[in-house]
Design a protein around this nucleic acid. Structure first.
Lengths: 216, 216
DNA sequence: TCGCACACAAATGGATCCATTCTCAAGATG
DNA sequence: CATCTTGAGAATGGATCCATTTGTGTGCGA
């Protein structure tokens, strides 16, 4: 068993299911059902739900159980503006510690992004591209916070891409190319600028589609 | 009973004790001892520790229990730089929704800050001053993240103030006055600038005292 | 026919008990 | 004499059982 503690194992499984889109916002997370499905008692499930709550992937109400949070347009807008401010810091912290191998990995990921057009594959690769650029960040807490923001908004990125994903590939690729070049040069100032613009443009486009979100 | 759920009640009590300095970084959090002290079984204590972990006020290692995290100078430095980027956003979001009564409350708090010189009282009032300025923030998540950053660094602010708190009161008061004036004018640009400077100056001074932190 | 109330069912919260893992110290062995 | 091993004690992790709360459905009354 790779993960010795059941609660972390269960949290990991549920996290993957939520990020993969199998559990969508609004879905009720029944303790009994999850415990039976994953072969444990309800106790580690309860702890797993707390862990997911920390990740922003579950929201529990006392005596009323847990759900995958359904965000409003305003919620997602704020998440993205937090990302615009925080992720450039994460990247700047990471840059000096990034190895040449990691930069080459980003290069290969970007090439694969440009050579295919499956939406779900893009989501995986895009996440990998950016998280690789943060891999050198020496602050565990900053990195965790960054990943949390990615996770909490993952569903809405997917919904947006499935809406009209293809026609913006050229813009994304140009942004990634500029970002990658700045990273390769270890130029934090340029990298921060391109990253901020990348996140901001995505936010603006994403919030043009109110139909993707909960009503207030 | 004001708090119907035991785990939240216990988490609240422990949070207060940590913020008040009764439980210092490095302190081991024994499930049995806490359960006995607060009159419950170990189960809600375990959930409370998870809740505190989300707040950055506890860190649990599988099979080895929980401790109040002891931060290094680099950790606190990063926390503060996250604050420099995030809190101006929180304040800008809050500003349009702040009531005149809340601005007056900030005024009264600042006056009390200037009229006394007890370190612990200052810590409480300073926290109240800033959190009041964020009270209008419509995004629960952004506000929670902000409070988390405050909580996680609270101990080191106290240690710093107890070191040589008094002689910097004039600077803090000037910064607060400028911030309060910008808030009263609902001037987000000025408010963000003064707030960023306030946090940054505190970080620079704080990190001049490596003796306050864990060695790496 | 509509509305309120009571009751039953289902899900979560908490307590107790058992299993597992880690720590630490004492003793044996090279 | 140092180091590795082993075992006892203690603390955490997990399972089962019971209590409490919530939500829903049915039946009675107006």
């Amino acid at each position: 068993m790779t993960e010795s503690v059941a609660s972390r194992r269960i949290a990991g499984i549920l996290r993957e299911e939520i990020l993969a889109g199998k559990l969508t916002p609004g879905t009720r997370l029944h303790q009994d059902e999850i415990a039976a499905r994953l072969g444990s008692s309800r106790l580690p499930v309860r702890e797993a739900l707390r862990i997911l709550e920390n990740d922003g992937l579950a929201k529990t109400t006392p005596n009323r159980g847990a759900r995958v949070p359904a965000l409003t347009l305003e919620d997602v807008n704020v998440y993205y503006r937090m990302r615009e401010r925080l992720e450039p810091l994460t990247l700047a912290e990471s840059l000096p510690h990034l190895t040449d191998e990691q930069v080459e990995a980003m290069q290969r990921i970007q090439e694969e992004i440009e050579s295919q057009d499956d939406v779900n594959r893009f989501l995986v690769l895009d996440r990998e591209f950016h998280l690789t650029s943060y891999a050198g960040c020496p602050s565990e807490h900053l990195l965790d916070t960054t990943v949390r923001l990615w996770n909490a908004t993952q569903h809405y990125r997917r919904a947006f891409m499935q809406l009209d994903g293809g026609n913006r590939a050229a813009i994304v690729n140009a942004e990634h190319r500029l970002l990658l070049d700045a990273v390769r040069r270890r130029d934090a100032e340029d990298a921060e600028r391109y990253l901020t613009g990348h996140i901001r443009r995505t936010r603006v486009e994403l919030t043009r589609h109110p139909e993707l979100f909960e009503r207030d």
